[in-house]
C-alpha cells in the first residue's frame, strides 16, 4: 500500500462505517486512478470534497435513523403534558389566590381589588382549552390556543414585573415552558388518542386529575403537609402522569416521550436555579459576569438536555438493533 493510498484511507474514516464497508475499496480505486503519478499527498480539492461528503453522510445517517421514528407522536403526548403542567400551575395559583381572598386578602393588583386573580384565571382557561383541543385531536386549534397562551404568559410576566418583580421572575419558567408547549403542538403528528389508545388516554387524564388534586390539597389547608416539603418535591409531581403516558405509548415512542419530557422538566428546574441565583445576588456580591454566565448556562440547559437525550436514545437504539440482529448498512 502506497503512502498516498494510506492517506486516502485515513481520510475516508470521516465516513460512517456502513458507507466505508460498502464503498471504501471502490473509492480508493477511483481516487488512485485520478491521482497523477508521483503524488504523495491527497489533493486539497479531493480532501475537502471527501470531508464534506463524509460529514454529510454521517449527518444524513444520524437524521435518517431519527426521521419518522415516532418523534412527532412523542411531541403530541409531551405537548399535552406541557399544557397540563401549565394549567396545573395556573390552577395552583388560582386556588392559592381564592384561598387567600377568603381569608380577607383583597388580591389587589395595579390598585384594583381582585385583579390579581385575573391572570391565573385566564391562564387556567387557556391551557385547559389547549389540552382539551390536543385530546380531541384538533391540532391547529391546539397550536393557535398555545400561541395565545404564550402571549398571555408573556403578558403575565410583564403584568407582575412592576408591582412584584419576584413574582414575575418566578413566572419566567412558565413562559419558557409555554414556548416549548407551542413548539411541541406545532411539531405534533398523530392525535394523542391514536398514540396512547383510548384506555391509555383515559388513564393519563385520570392520573393527571389525581396528581392535580394531590397537589392542590396541601395549599388549601385541607391536609397539613409542610409547604417546604411540597416545594422541594414539586418537580417530581408530574412524574406519575409521564410514567403512565410512556407506558401507554408504543415501544418506539416511549423513549422519545422520555427525552422530550426531560426537556419539559429541565425548564422549571433550570429556572428555579436561576431564581435562586437571582435571590442570592441580593445577599452576596455577585459580579455581573457570574450572573450572566449562570443565566446563559440555565437557558442552554433545555437545549443540552435535548441533545444529550437524542444522542443517548440513538446509541441505545443502535445497541438494541444489534441485539436483535438488525444492522443499518448501505447495502
Amino acid at each position: 500500500m502506497t503512502s498516498l493510498e494510506l492517506r486516502y484511507r485515513r481520510l475516508l474514516r470521516v465516513y460512517p462505517a456502513g458507507h466505508r464497508a460498502a464503498y471504501e475499496d471502490e473509492m480508493i480505486g477511483v481516487l488512485m486512478s485520478g491521482a497523477e503519478p508521483g503524488r504523495r499527498f491527497p489533493a486539497a480539492a479531493d480532501t475537502l470534497d471527501l470531508l464534506r461528503a463524509g460529514l454529510t453522510a454521517r449527518l444524513g445517517q444520524g437524521l435518517h435513523t431519527q426521521r419518522g421514528t415516532g418523534w412527532r407522536a412523542a411531541a403530541t403526548v409531551t405537548g399535552l403534558f406541557a399544557a397540563l403542567v401549565l394549567s396545573g400551575v395556573a390552577i395552583g395559583r388560582l386556588a392559592d389566590g381564592l384561598v387567600r381572598s377568603t381569608f380577607g386578602d383583597p388580591m389587589r393588583a395595579h390598585g384594583v381589588d381582585g385583579l390579581a386573580l385575573l391572570d391565573p384565571a385566564v391562564l387556567t382557561a387557556t391551557w385547559l382549552v389547549a389540552a382539551a383541543a390536543a385530546v380531541l385531536g384538533l391540532r391547529r386549534a391546539a397550536v393557535a390556543i398555545a400561541a395565545a397562551g404564550v402571549l398571555f404568559q408573556a403578558g403575565t410576566v410583564a403584568w407582575w414585573a412592576q408591582p412584584a418583580p419576584w413574582e414575575a421572575l418566578g413566572l419566567g419558567w412558565s413562559l419558557a415552558l409555554a414556548v416549548v408547549a407551542l413548539g411541541l403542538f406545532a411539531a405534533s403528528g398523530p392525535p394523542v388518542r391514536a398514540v396512547l389508545g383510548n384506555r391509555g388516554l383515559a388513564l393519563v387524564m385520570a392520573t393527571a386529575a389525581a396528581v392535580a388534586v394531590a397537589w392542590v390539597l396541601p395549599w388549601t389547608g385541607v391536609i397539613s403537609i409542610d409547604v417546604g416539603t411540597v416545594r422541594s418535591v414539586r418537580f417530581l409531581v408530574p412524574l406519575p402522569v409521564l410514567a403512565v403516558a410512556a407506558m401507554a405509548a408504543g415501544r418506539g415512542v416511549r423513549g422519545r416521550i422520555a427525552v422530550l419530557s426531560a426537556v419539559v422538566v429541565a425548564i422549571p428546574v433550570a429556572f428555579s436555579w436561576l431564581e435562586e441565583a437571582a435571590r442570592w445576588s441580593l445577599f452576596f456580591d455577585l459580579t455581573p459576569g457570574i450572573v450572566a454566565s449562570s443565566v446563559i448556562v440555565l437557558l442552554l440547559t433545555p437545549i443540552v438536555v435535548l441533545a444529550a437525550g437524542v444522542t443517548l436514545l440513538s446509541a441505545w437504539e443502535r445497541l438494541a438493533d444489534r441485539g436483535h440482529g438488525h444492522v443499518r448498512a448501505y447495502e
Binding site: 460498502a22 473509492m27 477511483v30 485520478g34 479531493d46 471527501l50 461528503a53
Partner: peptide
C-alpha cells in the same frame, strides 16, 4: 466529479 461527490450521488 470528485470521488466524494460521485459516491454521494451513486449511493
Amino acid at each position: 466529479l470528485r470521488a466524494g461527490t460521485l459516491y454521494a450521488a451513486l449511493d
